[in-house]
Protein backbone atom coordinates (compact mmCIF):
# COMPACT_ATOMS: atom_id res chain seq x y z
CA UNK A 1 0.00 0.00 0.00
CA UNK A 2 1.46 3.33 -1.05
CA UNK A 3 1.22 6.40 1.20
CA UNK A 4 -1.30 8.09 -1.11
CA UNK A 5 -3.58 5.04 -0.96
CA UNK A 6 -3.40 5.07 2.83
CA UNK A 7 -4.36 8.72 3.07
CA UNK A 8 -7.20 8.30 0.57
CA UNK A 9 -8.56 5.31 2.51
CA UNK A 10 -8.44 7.25 5.79
CA UNK A 11 -10.25 10.14 4.08
CA UNK A 12 -12.89 7.77 2.67
CA UNK A 13 -13.39 6.24 6.13
CA UNK A 14 -13.74 9.67 7.77
CA UNK A 15 -16.21 10.71 5.06
CA UNK A 16 -18.30 7.59 5.62
CA UNK A 17 -18.27 8.12 9.41
CA UNK A 18 -19.37 11.74 8.93
CA UNK A 19 -22.10 10.68 6.51
CA UNK A 20 -23.31 8.00 8.90
CA UNK A 21 -23.43 10.57 11.71
CA UNK A 22 -25.31 13.08 9.56
CA UNK A 23 -27.84 10.47 8.44
CA UNK A 24 -28.47 8.60 11.69
CA UNK A 25 -28.40 11.14 14.54
CA UNK A 26 -31.49 13.00 15.73
CA UNK A 27 -29.76 16.05 17.19
CA UNK A 28 -29.25 18.86 14.65
CA UNK A 29 -25.86 19.79 16.15
CA UNK A 30 -24.63 16.21 15.70
CA UNK A 31 -25.69 16.38 12.05
CA UNK A 32 -23.57 19.53 11.68
CA UNK A 33 -20.65 17.67 13.31
CA UNK A 34 -21.06 14.94 10.69
CA UNK A 35 -21.00 17.53 7.90
CA UNK A 36 -17.82 19.07 9.34
CA UNK A 37 -16.18 15.62 9.36
CA UNK A 38 -17.10 15.12 5.70
CA UNK A 39 -15.61 18.52 4.77
CA UNK A 40 -12.43 17.60 6.66
CA UNK A 41 -12.17 14.30 4.81
CA UNK A 42 -12.34 16.20 1.51
CA UNK A 43 -9.60 18.56 2.74
CA UNK A 44 -7.41 15.56 3.55
CA UNK A 45 -7.85 14.36 -0.03
CA UNK A 46 -6.85 17.76 -1.40
CA UNK A 47 -3.71 17.88 0.74
CA UNK A 48 -2.76 14.27 -0.06
CA UNK A 49 -3.09 14.84 -3.81
CA UNK A 50 -1.16 18.11 -3.49
CA UNK A 51 1.66 16.30 -1.66
CA UNK A 52 1.95 13.34 -4.06
CA UNK A 53 0.81 15.12 -7.23
CA UNK A 54 3.11 16.04 -10.10
CA UNK A 55 3.27 19.81 -9.40
CA UNK A 56 3.23 20.58 -5.67
CA UNK A 57 4.88 23.94 -6.30
CA UNK A 58 1.69 25.12 -8.08
CA UNK A 59 -0.05 24.96 -4.64
CA UNK A 60 -3.43 24.12 -6.17
CA UNK A 61 -4.56 21.50 -3.67
CA UNK A 62 -3.17 23.47 -0.73
CA UNK A 63 -5.08 26.60 -1.80
CA UNK A 64 -8.27 24.61 -2.29
CA UNK A 65 -7.94 23.16 1.21
CA UNK A 66 -7.29 26.59 2.77
CA UNK A 67 -10.32 28.14 1.05
CA UNK A 68 -12.37 25.09 2.00
CA UNK A 69 -11.42 25.58 5.66
CA UNK A 70 -12.58 29.22 5.46
CA UNK A 71 -15.88 28.27 3.84
CA UNK A 72 -16.44 25.49 6.39
CA UNK A 73 -15.94 28.00 9.22
CA UNK A 74 -18.60 30.27 7.71
CA UNK A 75 -20.91 27.29 7.26
CA UNK A 76 -20.47 26.21 10.87
CA UNK A 77 -21.24 29.71 12.18
CA UNK A 78 -24.43 30.10 10.13
CA UNK A 79 -25.55 26.51 10.75
CA UNK A 80 -25.14 26.72 14.52
CA UNK A 81 -26.88 30.13 14.52
CA UNK A 82 -29.81 28.50 12.73
CA UNK A 83 -29.87 25.64 15.24
CA UNK A 84 -29.94 28.08 18.16
CA UNK A 85 -32.77 30.07 16.54
CA UNK A 86 -34.77 26.88 15.81
CA UNK A 87 -34.30 25.75 19.40
CA UNK A 88 -35.53 29.13 20.64
CA UNK A 89 -38.57 28.85 18.37
CA UNK A 90 -39.51 25.17 18.66
CA UNK A 91 -37.73 24.28 21.97
CA UNK A 92 -36.12 21.21 20.40
CA UNK A 93 -33.09 20.27 18.33
CA UNK A 94 -34.60 16.90 17.44
CA UNK A 95 -34.73 16.67 13.66
CA UNK A 96 -37.50 14.03 13.73
CA UNK A 97 -39.77 16.59 15.40
CA UNK A 98 -38.89 19.38 12.96
CA UNK A 99 -41.40 18.48 10.28
CA UNK A 100 -42.95 21.85 9.54
CA UNK A 101 -41.60 24.65 7.38
CA UNK A 102 -44.12 27.09 8.81
CA UNK A 103 -43.74 28.11 12.44
Amino acid sequence: MTPLTGYLLVAALLFAIGLAGALTRRNAILVLIGIELMLNAANLNFIAFWRYGPHPEALTGMMFAIFSIAVAAAEAAVGLGLVIQIHRHAHTTDLDQMNRMKG
Partner: peptide, 10 residues
Protein backbone atom coordinates in the same frame (compact mmCIF):
# COMPACT_ATOMS: atom_id res chain seq x y z
CA UNK B 1 -2.10 14.21 9.22
CA UNK B 2 -1.71 17.54 7.38
CA UNK B 3 1.61 18.12 9.18
CA UNK B 4 2.68 14.58 8.28
CA UNK B 5 1.94 15.49 4.63
CA UNK B 6 4.37 18.47 4.87
CA UNK B 7 1.48 20.93 4.69
CA UNK B 8 2.49 23.01 7.70
CA UNK B 9 0.34 26.02 6.86
CA UNK B 10 -2.81 23.96 6.32
Amino acid sequence: LFLELDAQFA
